[in-house]
């Protein structure tokens, strides 16, 4: 009885209730004149969080164990330096500053958020803004040390094959999907007033 209560209490309060309430994700409409430049009508906008075959790409990301070296979480300034690191927290420097810490709704298209284990490599929450060119993203995966000689990123050469013409290499469907997923990582959608007032 005592053993059950000791475990049951945190189980209920810390896991079951927050889990079930988090499973019901609502959407928040932007008010008049508050529409972001990207044209989204609501937050979170699942359409803009997906790109090409990014759902399959997420599986490749998980299978290759990318989350053991890269995180996808931007902490507020009181909890870490993430917001200061250029490009990590979202688009900066323009007319509007979109940089912000990540919110639970930013992961709405994923079955489980891949928040990460260690930061052997940089945070990828907004890598889709930092690297916008598809070919450049492929180069990061195929020949990472061509771009950053001293980095710890290994090459994912096994996701590429010799091209049919015999010259150079071409991506497999797994590499293409992984690139789609990485390009889709943009967790800086502006938060509507309705969302902010809810919190």
């Amino acid at each position: 009885m005592g053993l059950g209560i000791c475990f049951g209490l945190p189980w209920l309060i810390l896991v079951v209730v927050p889990y079930l309430s988090a499973a019901k994700v609502g959407t928040f409409a932007y008010s008049e004149g508050d529409h972001p430049e990207d044209g989204q009508k609501v937050y979170p906008d699942p359409v803009s969080q997906r790109y090409g075959s990014s759902d399959y790409g997420r599986q490749v990301y998980a299978a290759e164990g990318c989350a053991y070296c890269h995180t996808q979480v931007i902490r507020p300034t009181y909890a870490g330096p993430d917001m200061w690191i250029p490009g990590w927290a979202g688009r900066e420097g323009g007319k509007e500053n979109f940089a912000r810490e990540t919110q639970p709704e930013d992961y709405v298209t994923e079955p489980v958020a891949l928040l990460g284990y260690q930061r052997i490599g940089p945070d990828l929450s907004n890598v889709g803004h930092r690297i916008t060119d598809r070919e450049e993203m492929h180069r990061h995966l195929r020949d990472p040390r061509e771009l950053e000689l001293e980095g710890g990123m290994p090459s994912f050469r096994h996701l590429y094959r010799r091209s049919l013409t015999g010259e150079g290499v071409e991506p497999t469907s797994r590499a293409d999907a992984l690139v789609d997923y990485l390009l889709s990582l943009k967790k800086d959608q502006p938060l509507p007033a309705a969302y902010l007032s809810r919190n």
């Binding site: 475990f7 896991v15 927050p18 889990y19 639970p104 992961y107 489980v112 958020a113 928040l115």
Partner: peptide, 26 residues
Amino acid sequence: VWFPWVYLTANLFINKYAAPVMGAGV
């Protein structure tokens, strides 16, 4: 007593219910 409870909770929640961030937390 505790381990089966912890193991079942983690597996049922992560595999059956989609709550992405709580999944990572669990």
